[in-house]
Design a protein around this nucleic acid. Structure first.
Lengths: 337, 337
DNA sequence: TTGAAAGCGCTACCAC
DNA sequence: GTGGTAGCGCTTTCAA
């Protein structure tokens, strides 16, 4: 057990050269005789040498590890984003340390602090919903650790970001509802302090305004986008007898729960109320009726985030990317045949 | 940018003590005067000192990082397992490096080799479907890096493992089908060289045998558990006019696809053929009809795996854990009212 | 109870 | 082109 691995000095001894020479040879430095280089490389291979990344990291101050922080690990959106990041950085020889904040500020802070201790060369993150104080991220930047934000932005300079175009997504979805003949369209937005809810509400309002419809008081509802809150919302509308002819939900979990309540109570979807969700969860297509939603291409977002990270590690300037979303139209919003 | 962080020697200088003393004080060694300890700790806090994990790792040969290898990152089962692992090791102060093999042997080998270079103190893994040569894992063990397998086992000694009880799961599911009155029950098993398919087939056969039913040639079908293969399977049965009254699928993706084909072709579920899947994917309940399946509690599996890992890192003996599954009965298999 | 010093494995500077 | 050596930040003998 615990057999020691070969080091450059093992190789150096065998070949009667210095460790410097071995190091240079292995790193493709020009300052080694071709003949020596060959012998070193060959011997290294023979001895099964592999560089110790820890030692390299300590010496150079740079690891080959990137950190990624997501609010929730078991949400399709984040899983896809992780997969996207992985697909890019893996080829570049990096590892991925993943941590989830559970949407808690305190946990996020601890994670960032832990990563800040030289463990990673960069951090890709979607901020926790709870977070309003960004100094932990600020510290990272000050330490020279580049950050790439995705999904949720932070009001902080000096970092790259890649997000879906929430405004455009909500705008298109609302337009679609209008085209289906809906006039009284409600919007269910997220509660937490996250930039995207605002962008979506703006998109909704803009589309309504462009259609010459005034969004009245009470048309926009603010709550967590959980199934529980979605259910409660539907019950509330039912109780008030105030059913709109269209609703744009800022999340599919809430939309799904509301749909169930409506159906149970004889409110037909989409005939009575057309519904569009957000995120395009994998199960949307299996709902009854299948739920229209806005696809955000999280895998692509992850890939772009990773590319920006690689770029930042190379010393590139921060950059902001906004990706288009796509409205997936299914039964739940199709009033017109 | 890139402000240097405080080191123990910074603290040592300020306090006019040696780095040894600082190190001891910070690590709670008994060999420091209480008064000195206090001053050191206080100064460390004041200077915002945080130990450099890289340096510690190089010195001690131990990181505070655990590696986790999954075949696919965007499968609910593995995502839940990851979440389970994370929930345990995080509290113990460990980080998680995650890598996915894509079910490819070559990629898995590279990942393991990369992790083997001292980056992690242990590896939690579910083997790639393609893998039949386990020497890369063998190397890890030889290096003293403990391994905990989950989901899929390896014919290798010296490692811990935690798996669901596939035999019992398949047995119960088959019993359930029998109780619904099914007699001609087919089994669709996975193709790849993975232990669990065998266990499931055995469970199926045992239940059939216990019911005094002979599993005839052609009743067990072997294929990848993908939607495409599931669809092809259903079409094949349809073409032969050989529809059984029950099918136990070893995966929900194949089951779902087959169900769609059956429904399109007028074969009623569960009246004509009762169907049970495996894994209990999150969307099972939304299918038409909702799909019965076997829940494997991947989150718990992840937690157990993490506990075994922590145990192994402490030098504990390897241990094998088998967790019960639970049959979730939905419409797709309910012939009896 | 404390300090000096070695050394984990590697890179890079300086000298030859 | 090559070797010697310092040192990254830390832990841990060994002496005092």
């Amino acid at each position: 057990m615990a057999s020691k691995s070969t080091t450059i000095s093992d190789i150096a001894k065998r070949l009667n050269v210095s460790t410097s020479t071995v190091s240079r040879a292995l790193n493709g430095s020009k300052l080694v005789a071709e003949e020596v280089r060959k012998r070193v490389v060959q011997e290294a291979k023979k001895m099964g040498y592999a560089p110790n990344p820890i030692a390299v990291a300590l010496k150079t101050g740079k690891t080959k590890t990137i950190g990624m922080i997501v609010p929730l690990i078991n949400r399709n959106y984040f899983v896809e984003a992780i997969a996207g990041v992985e697909s890019v950085i893996y080829d570049a020889g990096y590892d991925l340390i993943i941590a989830s904040s559970g949407n808690f500020y305190e946990r996020e802070r601890k994670i960032v602090e832990s990563l800040a201790q030289g463990k990673v060369v960069g951090v890709i993150a979607a901020v926790a919903a709870e977070t309003t104080d960004y100094s932990h991220y600020r510290n990272l930047i000050d330490k020279g650790v580049p950050i790439v934000m995705f999904d949720r932005l932070m009001p902080l300079d000096g970092m790259s970001s890649v997000v879906q175009d929430d405004f455009q997504g909500a705008y298109n979805a609302t337009r679609h509802l209008l085209e289906q003949g809906c006039r009284k369209i409600f919007h269910y937005r997220g509660l937490q302090n996250v930039s995207m809810w605002n962008a979506r509400e703006k998109g909704y309002r803009q589309a309504m305004a462009d259609a010459g419809i005034t969004v009245q008081k009470g048309w926009v509802h603010t709550a967590l986008t959980t199934p529980e809150e979605g259910e409660r919302y539907a019950r509330k509308l039912l109780a008030k007898g105030d059913i709109p002819d269209g609703i744009l939900f800022s999340g599919d979990f809430a939309a799904k729960a509301a749909m169930e309540v409506f159906t149970e109570n004889g409110v037909r979807i989409p005939e009575d109320v057309a519904i569009v969700g957000f995120v395009n969860e994998p199960w949307d297509k299996y709902l009854t009726p299948p739920l229209s939603s806005i696809e955000q291409f999280p895998y692509d977002i992850g890939k772009e985030a990773a590319r920006l990270m690689l770029r930042a590690i190379e010393g590139g300037k921060p950059r902001k990317i906004v990706l288009d979303t796509e409205l997936i139209i299914r039964q739940s919003s199709k009033k017109l045949k």
